[in-house]
Every structure is written in structure tokens, then in C-alpha cells.
């Protein structure tokens, strides 16, 4: 199952898709509403660029529809009621696949950089001669 899913991630990841992984992780950590998720996403070290409200809410609706997350209205104690999102078992599985995929990518990038540094070193040796 994981091998099969991993193969789907071979194409480069778009920002739109990587936001889904980030949202799954944040919701795995704790259920949240959209407003809070946007704030947490923009504070996260792994976020590159700004996550805008339209992109986040669009992805939350899509993931809700796909069964990766579920939502219900939660009344605020002193503020407004908001839609609260939480991870489903399918979402948990998807998050695991994302983590495996990213680990694989990290390993590939490390191999690339190792090869590059060796190449860079060989260039400087050639110049010294």
C-alpha cells in the first residue's frame, strides 16, 4: 500500500499539495479551526512562503471531502462558533505516506549534495594544479 502510494509522489510537489501535508501534521498534533491553522502554519519552521486564507480553507474543504479530515461546528466559549477540523484514520495514513516520501526525498537530496561537494572538491584540486 505504502509502496504504491509512494510511487504517486514521484512528480515534483506543488505548494498546493505540500500545504495538505503540513495541515495534516498540524491537525495530527491537535484539532484546530481554520483561523488557528493559518496562524500555526505561518509560524511553522517548515513553511516556505506565506500561506494565505483562501489556499488554506480551499485545501481544508478538499481534504474534508476526501475523508482525510472531518469537521464539525464548535461553539466558542466567549467568541464565535467556528468549524473545527480533526484528522481521520485515512488522514493519519496519508500523513505517514507523506513523511516516508519526504524522508526518501531528503535521502536523495543528501546523496546529490554529497556528490556535488566531491565534484566541487575535485574542481579546486584541478585548479591548484
Amino acid at each position: 500500500m505504502n509502496e504504491e502510494n509512494l510511487s504517486k509522489f514521484e512528480s515534483p510537489i506543488s505548494i498546493e499539495r505540500s500545504i495538505q501535508a503540513e495541515l495534516l501534521l498540524l491537525l495530527g498534533q491537535r484539532p484546530s479551526h481554520g483561523y488557528e491553522l493559518i496562524q500555526r502554519l505561518n509560524e511553522a519552521d517548515y513553511q516556505s512562503g506565506e500561506a494565505d486564507a483562501a489556499t488554506v480553507y480551499r485545501n481544508l474543504r478538499r481534504m474534508d471531502k476526501d475523508g482525510l479530515i472531518k469537521s464539525h461546528w464548535e461553539m466558542g466559549e466567549s467568541g464565535p462558533g467556528r468549524r473545527l477540523y480533526e484528522l481521520t484514520p485515512l488522514g493519519e495514513e496519508s500523513l505517514k505516506v507523506w513523511a516516508q516520501y519526504l524522508a526518501q526525498q531528503k535521502s536523495k537530496l543528501e546523496s546529490f549534495l554529497q556528490a556535488y561537494f566531491q565534484f566541487e572538491k575535485s574542481l579546486s584540486v584541478t585548479k591548484e594544479r
Partner: peptide
């Protein structure tokens, strides 16, 4: 810009 258009909770 989102820092002034009141759209993003990240800039609350």
C-alpha cells in the same frame, strides 16, 4: 499586500 488587506490571520 496581505499585510495590509486584512485577509490573513497570520498578521492579526
Amino acid at each position: 499586500p496581505s499585510k495590509i488587506n486584512l485577509s490573513n490571520p497570520a498578521y492579526a
